[in-house]
């Protein structure tokens, strides 16, 4: 009997899976997504990875990013390594693809904020820096 916490939504249902029967007996979920989660978690667990990447802009050193979709749990570290090597030097916008296929997972890494916003809002003196400065 395996016990899992479903991470699909904030409910965090406590799901019990009996793998000795076929099909597996899965209980504890409040919605059908929990069943899918339990099956996947025990065969091929995946996660989204949310992080930041370096930029070449002195006043905004980091841009938040995420994987567009989930990657295998086992590849999270290599995904992080590849993200760490990236330096964004253009004004990326929310949703822009920064890495097409990260660490061979087939999943893209996208920006989750508009760099221009961060530059404009993050200047130490509150002065908006126009692009091109």
């Amino acid at each position: 009997m395996r016990k899992l916490t479903c991470i699909v939504c904030p409910n965090g249902c406590s799901i019990h899976v009996n793998q000795d029967v076929d099909p597996w007996n899965i209980v504890g979920n409040l919605c059908p997504r929990g069943i899918d989660f339990a099956r996947k978690e025990l065969t091929n667990p995946t996660r989204t990875v949310c992080s930041t990447v370096r930029t070449s802009f002195a006043t905004v050193r980091r841009l938040p990013v995420r994987t567009r979709g989930e990657v295998p749990l086992a590849s999270v570290r290599s995904v992080m390594s590849e993200i760490s090597r990236l330096v964004v030097d253009r004004e990326a916008r929310t949703g822009d693809t920064l890495i097409e296929n990260v660490a061979g997972t087939g999943v893209a890494v996208v920006a989750t904020a508009d760099l221009a916003d961060l530059i404009e809002w993050e200047d130490c003196d509150g002065r908006p820096i126009c692009s091109g400065d």
């Binding site: 899992l4 916490t5 479903c6 991470i7 699909v8 939504c9 904030p10 409910n11 965090g12 406590s14 996660r47 749990l73």
Partner: peptide, 12 residues
């Protein structure tokens, strides 16, 4: 905290 965070932040 939320149980899902125990799972995906600590257990993982």
């Amino acid at each position: 905290g939320l149980s899902r965070n125990i799972a995906q932040c600590l257990d993982d």
